[in-house]
Structure formats: C-alpha cells, structure tokens
Amino acid sequence: MRFTNSLIGMINFLTFLLSIPILGGGIWLSSKANTTDCMRFLQWPLIIIGISIMVVSLAGFAGACYRNTSLLWFYLVAMFCIIAALIGFIIFAYGVTDKGSGRSVLNRGYLDYYLSDYSGWLKDRVDQDSYWSKISSCIRDSHVCANMGLEINGVPESADMFYYRNLSPIQSGCCKPPTECGYVYVNETVWNQGGGLMDSDPDCLKWSNDQTQLCYYCDSCKAGVLASLKKSWRKVSVINIVVLILLVIVYVVAYAAFKNNKRYDNDEPYGSARMTKAQPSSLHF
C-alpha cells in the first residue's frame, strides 16, 4: 500500500510542477498588450489545460499521501474522463485527416494543394470565414512567407532553383500562386502574370503581389493548412498513443492505491470494535 501511494504521489507531484509553466504561459499571453490573434487563440486552451492538470494532480497527490479515499475516487474519475477523451481524440484525429494530399507537378520539387481534394468536418471548419480570418492572421504573424527567401553566395536564387525546392504545404499554398495559373517567377513572393489560363482556377485571380495579401485568401492556402494539419495531427496522435499507454498504467496503479486505502478504512473500525468487545470479557475473569 505504501509503495502504490508513494508512486502515485510522486507522479502527481511531477505533473503538478508541469502544470505551473503551462498555466503561466497562458496567463502571460493574456497579459500582453500586443497579443496577436494567433496568440489570443492559444491563451485560453493553455489556461484551461494548466488548471485541469493542476487540480487533478493535487487531488491525486493529496489522496495518495494522506490515504484519502474520497480524493483518490475523484482522481480516478477524472483520469478515466481524460483517458476516454484521449481515445476519442485519437479516433477523431485519424477520422478527419484520412483524405487529401498534395498533387505532384511536372518539373517541380514541391506539391500543389487543392481544397477540392479534402472533405469532412475539418475542411468545413477551415473553410468558414470566421475561422479562416484567425488562421490567416496566424500565418501572417508567423512570417512564413517573408522568410522564404534564399541567397547563395549573396545572390538570390533563380527560378529554376526555386522550382525544385521542397516547400512546406503552407509555403506552397499561401506564398505563391498555383502552378497552373502560369505566373512568371520574379522572386519567392513576387510573381507576374504570364501566358497561363488565368480563369482555370479562381485562385489565379486572388493572387496579389501585395506582401500582406499574397495567396492568403486562396483555396490553395486553405488546402495547404489542411495538409499541414494532417501531418501534425498524425504526429500528435502517435504521441497521444504513447501518453495513453502511460496514463492507463498510472490509472491501474492509482486504482490499486484506491482499493488498498478503502480496505484500510474498512479494517480499522472493525479491529476497534473487536477490542471493545473483548475488554468486558477479560474484566469478568
């Protein structure tokens, strides 16, 4: 019993320490006067996650150290909800990212991305104006397009060098026009109209050399974000599977501590009752 309680107490003390920088990061973001839309989008999830981890960790730590069955029961219920939510998220993440990928382009090292290749809940959310305004603001704030420029021995890269670069989905979808539009390369984020079919894709008319616009309102940019989300969500899901296994192990140990504490609570009054009944018998003799 002491071993299981000590192990649960130690684990929850470590998770409590982990919750402090998470909660502090959310509070710091909310207190900054120049908080961008992207940062503002992150602050509340950080605060909620930090508070949740802190409360659950304190319940588990106090319940294990003081053999408090009620706190351990609350801890088990909270852990069960977390495990169930994690399983649900893993299934959901694989379900909403099962379709869509970039298309290969002749004589290009990068892929082009089309919103029509994606479908489902995630695509509908990204395509909504209210959500896309926040997402596009995050892309602008990250300066991903402004940082695309490359120089070799002080000379800007040529068009042929750019064409064979391995661009990220967001760089390909948001920072340049679709290849089929036929724009002529000037530099990484400046393209002039060429002899392509400008009406073949609505994105051809949305492209702008204005560095605050580029292709942030193109469907190709939304498709690039979806491709990037798919890649990152799949990586996060692998990490979540590992975390899920660890949480199940912790849950089993916590359940053992709960059962031991409950048995201890039930045995103590029973032993006291036997002693009180035995005393009058010894006085009779």
Rank of each mutant, 00 (worst) to 15 (best):
L58T: 11
F162P: 02
S52C: 05
L86Q: 15
A146S: 11
Y110T: 00
L58A: 13
K231D: 07
P202Y: 13
S30H: 06
F41Y: 08
E157S: 08
S237Y: 09
A257T: 09
S6H: 11
F13V: 13
S31N: 11
N12A: 06
K235H: 11
P178T: 07
S52Y: 05
A254P: 03
V56R: 03
D117H: 10
V55M: 12
L229I: 15
N192P: 08
D112N: 09
A254N: 06
S281Y: 15
T15A: 02
C215A: 10
D124V: 02
L14M: 04
F92T: 12
K262N: 12
F3S: 04
I49P: 00
A254T: 10
A93W: 03
L14P: 02
C174W: 01
G26K: 03
M10Y: 08
V126Q: 06
N147P: 01
E268P: 02
A78S: 15
L115A: 11
V243L: 15
A159P: 00
L214K: 11
D160Y: 06
V55P: 04
L86Y: 04
K222C: 07
S172R: 01
W233Y: 15
W191T: 14
G149C: 00
W73Q: 14
G24D: 04
G63R: 02
A273K: 15
L14K: 01
D160R: 09
N260K: 02
D127R: 09
D129W: 06
S158C: 01
S281K: 15
I249C: 07
S57Q: 00
Y113T: 11
S272K: 13
N240H: 13
P178S: 06
L244W: 03
A62V: 14
F92K: 10
S6K: 13
D203M: 01
I22M: 08
N266D: 14
N147G: 02
V144G: 04
D98R: 10
R274D: 10
V126D: 04
I90H: 03
L7Y: 03
R2S: 05
H143I: 09
K123L: 12
I47M: 12
N266Y: 10
G102R: 05
A33G: 01
T69Q: 13
L72A: 05
K262P: 03
A254W: 02
N68P: 04
E180R: 12
V105G: 02
S130W: 09
S272M: 07
I241P: 07
V248Q: 01
K176A: 15
S272P: 00
L197E: 13
S172E: 04
K259C: 14
G149D: 08
I27L: 11
I47C: 07
V155R: 03
V55D: 05
T276Q: 02
Y164S: 13
V248A: 02
G100N: 02
S208C: 07
M275L: 13
A223V: 06
V225T: 08
K99W: 00
P177G: 00
W191Q: 14
G63F: 01
A78W: 09
D112L: 00
L58S: 12
C174Q: 01
F92A: 12
A84W: 00
L23F: 13
G109P: 05
G154W: 01
S281N: 14
Y251F: 14
F41E: 06
S282K: 11
I152V: 12
I90Y: 04
I49E: 00
N107A: 14
N209T: 15
Y217Q: 15
L14H: 01
K99S: 00
S30Q: 11
D219W: 01
R108M: 09
K230D: 06
I83P: 01
D129A: 12
